[in-house]
Each structure stands twice: as structure tokens, then as C-alpha cells.
Design a protein around this nucleic acid. Sequence first.
DNA 1: GATCACCCCCAAGGTGGGCTTATGCTCGAA
DNA 2: TTCGAGCATAAGCCCACCTTGGGGGTGATC
Lengths: 304, 304
Amino acid sequence: MIEARHLRVLRAVATTGSFSAAARELGCTQPAVSQQMKALEQSTGTPLLIRTGREMRLTQAGEALVRHASGILAGLTAAEEEVAAIAGLRAGRVRMVSFPSGSSTLVPGALARMRAAHPGTQISLVEAEPPRSVELLRDGDCEIALAFRYPEVPGSDPAAAAEWDDLVVRPLLTDRLIGVLPEGHRLAGAERIGIAELAEESWIAGCPRCRRHLVEVCESAGFTPRIDFATDDYPAVFGLVGAGLGVAVMPELALETVRPKGSVIVPVEPVVQREIVALTLPDLARVPAVAATLSELATATARP
Amino acid sequence: MIEARHLRVLRAVATTGSFSAAARELGCTQPAVSQQMKALEQSTGTPLLIRTGREMRLTQAGEALVRHASGILAGLTAAEEEVAAIAGLRAGRVRMVSFPSGSSTLVPGALARMRAAHPGTQISLVEAEPPRSVELLRDGDCEIALAFRYPEVPGSDPAAAAEWDDLVVRPLLTDRLIGVLPEGHRLAGAERIGIAELAEESWIAGCPRCRRHLVEVCESAGFTPRIDFATDDYPAVFGLVGAGLGVAVMPELALETVRPKGSVIVPVEPVVQREIVALTLPDLARVPAVAATLSELATATARP
DNA sequence: GATCACCCCCAAGGTGGGCTTATGCTCGAA
DNA sequence: TTCGAGCATAAGCCCACCTTGGGGGTGATC
């Protein structure tokens, strides 16, 4: 087995013409060069150098090795350079998956800053809801998944909390849920309302996880919500509420891109928060481009 | 510094998909693979593998390394193969230099056997007299030099004996010198003649070294030969002797290709022998193709 | 749902190789 | 002839690698 280190030494000996000069060029002592060449000749089984006292010449086998050495060492340095480019953020690809209201608000700024800071990196974004996005992450189809989670409601199934225990969970910000009522609702003018006050209302729920959490919160408040509609399209929620078909709770973050029409928003008690997090795999968290993107996401969402 | 061994392991991990399978393929234990990959990741400074519990995937940097690995490892195996071909006598070049009467007699058979036994080798031959041929050898312009030497005459300069003390000297055969007389010479019918009987003759000498030795031998026999002609062309020697211009001594080997015409050959006393040897450099003597050629020369000249 | 098999990581021990320093030898130049 | 340069060798130290043994986790199977 020829080692690349041996080829490097052999090439230095061939170009400089002596062991001592090669040692100086390689930054080691002359016996080190001497021993390496002896080891290389032993591993190849044939002499590579001719020591004539006057000068150091190559045998035919030595010439063959030197001829191959340039290509091999060039390949090695090219590989090192490419890896170093990825490690040094001069290259690298980050595929991000985000849930809809996150991609429209949190992500763009972070991506723009990432591109500006590290022009060589390629950041892509697709949208997917949390269960699917985590699946993409685990399957290797993305590097970062933006997801959200609700605080655990006492008495509910604790399985959800362990859902991401093998992932790196990086909290980005907490998003408060607010109530959405029709404009003419009896509580539309209230400063804040208790969620139990909406026990008799018809409810419009969001995605399955949001819906599940809504039920848990309502049940801990003493009632089971009557859910007539379920959609994770926020403009549709506003439309349904505005049409008087029910009430809803909605992440405050959604309001940054969707304007209520025919409905009013009211803070609800108890304060329900969802936490928006970035998820990645432990190994990926150490990939420079991924780490940098996570940092950009964190700073982009840091609001004092 | 990326090492070829690491690339080999990484490629095995990438193709097999697990450390254990790679270890089986490489013939080592699984912790060895694990440690090698850790070392490689540490030397590159970035994760290369994603351990998801289920399967082992490559990061982008890992993919880049594997992509380069094939070329690098192919280059290494190609280099090993070429060197192995030279070491295994499936390739290799031997440039031989011989003095004229050697090349016409000793060499052809040895070269033919060499070609037959190792068809991949390339044997070439050029002619040069000993001082020049040794120079070619020392300058790296040939691998084997055929030369001859005379036994040291007591009282003469011992420098000649040390001329080749840094070379590998492989004796091939000893060549007896015989006297050449004109057909009508008074001693032409003798069974053998003492060299002192030719003290008053006119002499025809050969190459400078032959001439020098002739003088030494004659002087130890009590006379100084009168040398009127000097040529190392044996047919010319026969011509000169046949024309009655003098007497000569000549290697018996020369008679194999040159037929005397107008002259007779007579053994002389004391028996003067020259030793024909193959010379090479110590390092070259260990080159397989050179060693094989030397063996062929030795067996070709072994006469029971 | 429990067990089994597989796979990976970690720690410890032993062995081997590589580098360095120091020394001797040879060769070529002044 | 002396001096400097260069290579080889030996001894010693240190690091790196490999192996063995044990533990934790996961997925499949009964």
C-alpha cells in the first residue's frame, strides 16, 4: 500500500535531488526522509532511487511513481480544497423546509443575510408542515426544518414532547396565539377574553397539531370545543370567521402577512404560546453552512 | 492532510452503508473504521457522515470526498500496478553497454533468453569501450556495462584494481589471450611459445588498456615491446599481422567472429587472461530487470 | 410487548511506526 | 590534506493505530 505521504517525499527528493534538500523543503529532518524512502522501497519491493554519492537519481520504477505522484497529489489537494471550501463556507448547500407562516416571515431575512455573508453557499427552501418536514429531515432530504411546538399541557399525552429528542432543537422565538372573532361578536370589543368564554362557540381549527393542542387547552379550561371547520390556510380562517361561522385562535405571526377582514383579534387568556424552532440532525448541526444558517435564523428572530 | 487509507475506508463506508460492513470488507474491526472516520472528520474539520441510527449517510463534504476518492485511489492502484509490473519483470528497461567483442559473442544469447523469459522487458545494447562504458553507467545512461580487466601484474600501478570498487562486479568468464603470428613466422608452427621469444618483434597493440597490460606483461618477462601499430579492430589486427607487419596477442573470444587470414594463432606463455565482467551500480543490482539480465549473462557464459 | 440481533460509541491496553537527536562514514571541494 | 555536505544507522521517545471488552440504542421478530 503506497501512502500519499511517501509520494510527497519522493517527489520532493526527485525535484531537489537530495534527501537533505527534500527534508528542508518538507520541514523535517534528513533521517526522516531517508527512512520514508526506505519504507517506500520496501513496500514497493524494488529500488526507486540510485545513490551514486554524487547525485540522487531515480530508477525506472521511481520515475513511474513520480509520474503518477503529481496526479495523485493533485487529486488529494483538490479534494482537500473542496472540503475546505465547504468547511470555510465558501461553498455548501443548505436545504431548508419551513411551515408556511414561517417561510413567509422568519426565513427570508435570514436567507438574505446568509447569502450576503457567504456568497458561495446555496440556500434553498421548500414548504412543509411539521410532521412531513421532520420526515424530510430524517430522510436526508433537507438540512434544516423549521417547526413549531406547543408547551405540554398537564395531563395530556407526553409522547409529543419526546418526538424530537434525537434532533437538535434550536428555539427561535415564541409566538403568541390570539383569538379571532367576527366583527359583531359580543366579545369583539373586550381587552382580553378568557378562553372559557368561548365554550359555546363554533370553532375553526388549523392544522392537526394545532387542532389537537386547541382541544387540550380547552379541555384544561373545562370544555370541549365544537370544531366545525379545520383549515390551515390563514386567509381562509379569516374568511370563515368574518362570515360569522365561528371563532378561532391563530398565531400572531400569521398577522404579519395576512390582514384580518371582517374579523377582529383579541388576546385570549390563558396566554397560549407556540414555540418556533429550527430542527436539524446532530451531525448536520456541525456542518458549517448549516450552523451558519441556524445562527442567522437565531439572530434574525432575536427581538429584544 | 488527507490520507489515502482514510479515503479507502470512507469509500467502503459509503458503498456498504455501515461501519460494520465496511470493516468486514476491509478486514478489520468496526472500531477501527469508526476511529478512522473520526480522524478523517477531525482532519478535514467538518462532518462527513450523518449517523441517523437507521442508516449512514454522507454529508455534502463526504460526498465530495467520495467523489474524489475514486480518482485518487485509481491513481494509486495504477501507480502500484506499474511499479509491480517493473518489480515483477512484466515491464522494465535495461540499457546495456558492451565492448565490441563482447557484444558480438556474449550478449546476443543472453538478450534472446531475456526477451523470451520476460517479454515485457525492453533490452537495449550499445557499444562502448570500458572507460567510456563505466562513465555511462555512473552517469545513469545505462544499467549494465560489460567490461574486462586484466589480473594485476606485480609491481604495476594498483590504481586500476580500485577503479570499480564502488560498483557491483559480476565475473562472467575469463578469456585467454593467444598470440597471432604471420603464417611464415619462425615460431608459427610451435605448440606454445614464451612471450620473451617475441622480444625483438614489432608489436600490434589493441585498445589503450590492452596496450598498457601488454607492456606490463612484457616488462615482467624482461623486455619492452616495440609497438608500431595500435588498433582495437580485430580484423585489422589480423590484416596487419598477415601482412608481416608484426605480432599481436588477442582475446580468444575474438576468434569466434573473426577468422584469421594469412596468420596463425599460437598459445603464449605465461598464460595471459582477461576477465570479462558485468558492471552495475549497487542500487541497480537490486532492480529486478537488471538482476535478471545479469543472471542470464552469467548462465549464458557458464561453460563447464 | 419482550427478546434478539445488529450496530455504533467509548475506554483501556498493547504494539508498531515515525520522528528526532546523535554519531559515523564517504565524497567532493578548497 | 582538511573541511563541509550529505547519507546511513542506532537509540529513544512519542504518537497513532488496532484490538478487546463493555454499554446503549434501534429495528425486527415471535
